[in-house]
Simulated scan of single mutants.
Amino acid sequence: MIRTVVAFGAVGAMLVACAPERQVSGRALYMDYCASCHGLEGRGDGPAAAGLGKAPADLTGLAARNGGVFPRVHVMSVIDGYTRRDDRGSVMPELGAALQEGPLVRVDTGNGISTPTPVNLVALANYLERLQE
């Protein structure tokens, strides 16, 4: 097995994982689960956005709205649905179950505790970080 170590910039998160047999594509996950509402470039202008009661977030400004730092742990929590369980007004689906296929990787969420996290969730968050302006 190959061991991979990836540092997550200013958040200081650390990912240590055994490489999965097939490469996980954050872009492909985004196209499958997010682009219909958030649009191809993440601006909240996808074809399904017009039919929603609330406009989807512009995902290209997540870091800008967080003092220039990509809020990785918060983003993963929103995607998973964990932070929105009590938000009955949200139209965004909880993707936690959909992203659980594949191995778990350990992510330091900034509190010194390494948390097992689905590799697909991490890959999607990595892709969203690349969309930042």
Rank of each mutant, 00 (worst) to 15 (best):
residue 6 V to Q: 12
residue 25 S to M: 00
residue 68 G to P: 06
residue 118 P to E: 02
residue 44 G to I: 14
residue 68 G to E: 02
residue 16 V to P: 11
residue 35 A to Y: 00
residue 31 M to C: 05
residue 25 S to I: 00
residue 124 L to K: 02
residue 97 A to D: 14
residue 3 R to W: 11
residue 18 C to F: 11
residue 101 E to P: 09
residue 64 A to D: 06
residue 125 A to Y: 05
residue 48 A to H: 08
residue 10 A to T: 13
residue 117 T to Q: 01
residue 44 G to H: 11
residue 91 V to I: 10
residue 12 G to Q: 00
residue 6 V to A: 02
residue 36 S to V: 12
residue 114 S to R: 13
residue 120 N to R: 15
residue 52 L to A: 10
residue 85 R to W: 07
residue 117 T to N: 00
residue 76 M to Y: 11
residue 13 A to L: 11
residue 77 S to L: 11
residue 126 N to V: 13
residue 101 E to W: 05
residue 122 V to H: 05
residue 51 G to C: 06
residue 45 D to E: 14
residue 5 V to T: 15
residue 120 N to A: 15
residue 115 T to I: 15
residue 98 A to T: 04
residue 2 I to G: 09
residue 23 Q to C: 04
residue 9 G to C: 08
residue 25 S to E: 01
residue 129 E to M: 04
residue 19 A to D: 13
residue 28 A to K: 01
residue 51 G to E: 02
residue 27 R to H: 11
residue 133 E to N: 05
residue 2 I to S: 12
residue 132 Q to A: 03
residue 75 V to C: 00
residue 70 F to K: 07
residue 61 G to L: 15
residue 101 E to I: 12
residue 119 V to Q: 04
residue 67 G to P: 04
residue 64 A to G: 10
residue 22 R to T: 08
residue 47 P to K: 04
residue 99 L to D: 03
residue 7 A to E: 09
residue 112 G to T: 13
residue 53 G to F: 04
residue 14 M to V: 14
residue 66 N to L: 02
residue 68 G to V: 03
residue 21 E to D: 13
residue 66 N to Y: 02
residue 13 A to W: 10
residue 105 V to I: 15
residue 87 D to Q: 08
residue 5 V to W: 01
residue 71 P to C: 06
residue 57 A to V: 13
residue 37 C to V: 09
residue 124 L to C: 09
residue 86 D to R: 03
residue 131 L to A: 04
residue 14 M to N: 05
residue 69 V to Y: 06
residue 56 P to G: 05
residue 64 A to Y: 02
residue 90 S to W: 04
residue 17 A to F: 14
residue 45 D to R: 13
residue 90 S to Q: 08
residue 67 G to D: 03
residue 126 N to W: 14
residue 28 A to E: 09
residue 65 R to C: 07
residue 87 D to L: 11
residue 132 Q to C: 05
residue 11 V to F: 10
residue 2 I to C: 03
residue 95 L to I: 06
residue 55 A to E: 08
residue 100 Q to Y: 07
residue 133 E to W: 12
residue 31 M to H: 05
residue 26 G to C: 00
residue 127 Y to F: 15
residue 115 T to Y: 02
residue 112 G to S: 02
residue 27 R to D: 14
residue 3 R to V: 15
residue 73 V to P: 10
residue 47 P to M: 03
residue 110 G to K: 00
residue 92 M to W: 00
residue 45 D to I: 05
residue 92 M to H: 01
residue 118 P to D: 06
residue 115 T to L: 09
residue 114 S to H: 13
residue 29 L to F: 01
residue 64 A to P: 00
residue 23 Q to E: 09
residue 10 A to S: 06
residue 92 M to I: 11
residue 78 V to T: 13
residue 57 A to C: 12
residue 38 H to N: 03
residue 64 A to C: 03
residue 47 P to S: 03
residue 69 V to M: 09
